[in-house]
Design a protein around this nucleic acid. Structure first.
Lengths: 207, 207
DNA sequence: AGCGTTATTGAACGATCGTACAATACTATT
DNA sequence: AATAGTATTGTACGATCGTTCAATAACGCT
């Protein structure tokens, strides 16, 4: 009847270049994991979130496991980028970037209860999947290297083992985020932020 | 034919008092979760581990969720008991029990990659279950109270906020255990033990 | 315009999930 | 010895899981 109208009202081309579709599925995976945690990890839920048919997942990814690994890479990449952005923007602490990291550790773009839900799922999958384990190792290595750079800039005249300090900082933030997010009464982050601030204060004094 | 033989060879009474059967199912749950992680959380696998029929789970527990919550309570209880046992046994540090906690943090009865697999599953379930969330809060509260007592004894003349310190210690150990256990090359715990030792050293100096 | 390529769909498959339930076996009480 | 109570079994059900695949639709190229 009104083919032009039909063409206009009909959703625009539903065909995407593979890379875009892959990104869209990765994004949908992160949304599902952040919203529901482990129970959000379902091929059907992910494809529904991406408004795409079930079969498409296995067309762009050889398995769900591979999609999850890609999503793990992506959330890690965003975390890394967010850290760099905060450090670049904090003109006051250019010489002590670790101060910037600590002060933004509970900002929404760095970590949130939502995001931690996804991280916990990734950790859980790291336990029983070789591919996830390899991905986890790669991510950890990358973040640790970056953290060491940040610490080296922050403590130019210190002789402490920066790798040890980087692992400690990473472990402490992971634990604080866990405690903050899994807590029943999801309070403000003030308490946990204070703890991290005091840790940094002590660490800088003795380094 | 040989009824007496049959009676002897036949498994002995397969009927147990409810409390014992419940404990057995809880134990089987922990074994499954420590062995396989999240994929070990299956009513059928748990009952197979307990050498019991599938239907028995819902006779002694109203749901799988309730069994998992009971298992979470149990692993936490064992952890708590193991901590107390180490402190009692360490006669050298009776006045500084936090030193004992730190030095045994990577002992097999306190934490191991196996046990952490189970903890990660419990954390994961805490995200999307009200019952697990309540259990998690109760466990956290109990352990934090105990940690504060340990710290109070270790730092009698300090004016630092012991609750803050307890949360920091708990978060740090959680993060170190995670990093240690999820690491691809499951090395010895030496590196992570050193990190914890240095943390304590700095903390005691400034407290 | 026609053709080959491939992104996309949705149904179908087999596996596994948690739970319900009737049947059975054991124990304790009388 | 008979009976009541219940622990235990194993099947069955409906739901959901990840993946496969033939059919279809959209695109680029000549």
């Amino acid at each position: 009847m009104f083919p032009s109208f039909g063409a206009v009202l009909k959703k625009k081309s539903d065909r995407l270049p593979p890379n875009e579709r892959r990104s869209q599925l990765i994004e949908a995976t992160l949304i599902c994991l952040m919203r529901e945690g482990a129970s959000g990890l379902s091929s059907r839920k992910i494809c529904a979130q991406a408004q795409v048919s079930v079969g498409l997942l296995n067309h762009h990814f050889s398995s769900q496991e591979e999609l999850v690994a890609a999503a793990y890479e992506e959330i890690s990449r965003r975390y890394h980028e967010a850290l760099k952005a905060h450090i670049d923007a904090d003109t006051k602490n250019q010489n002590v970037p670790i101060k910037t990291l600590v002060s933004c550790a509970f900002e929404a773009d760095i970590m949130s209860p939502d995001q931690l839900r996804a991280w916990v799922v990734f950790w859980s999958k790291t336990i029983d999947s070789k591919l996830m384990r390899a991905t986890h190792d790669r991510i950890n290595q990358r973040l640790q290297t970056y953290l060491i750079q940040v610490l080296a800039k922050s403590l130019p005249n210190s002789n402490v083992d920066l790798q040890v300090l980087a692992i400690e900082y990473s472990a402490l933030t992971d634990g604080l985020w866990l405690d903050w997010s899994l807590n029943g009464q999801h309070q403000s982050s003030q308490l946990w932020q204070t703890i991290l601030n005091q840790w940094l204060h002590r660490t800088l004094m003795l380094a």
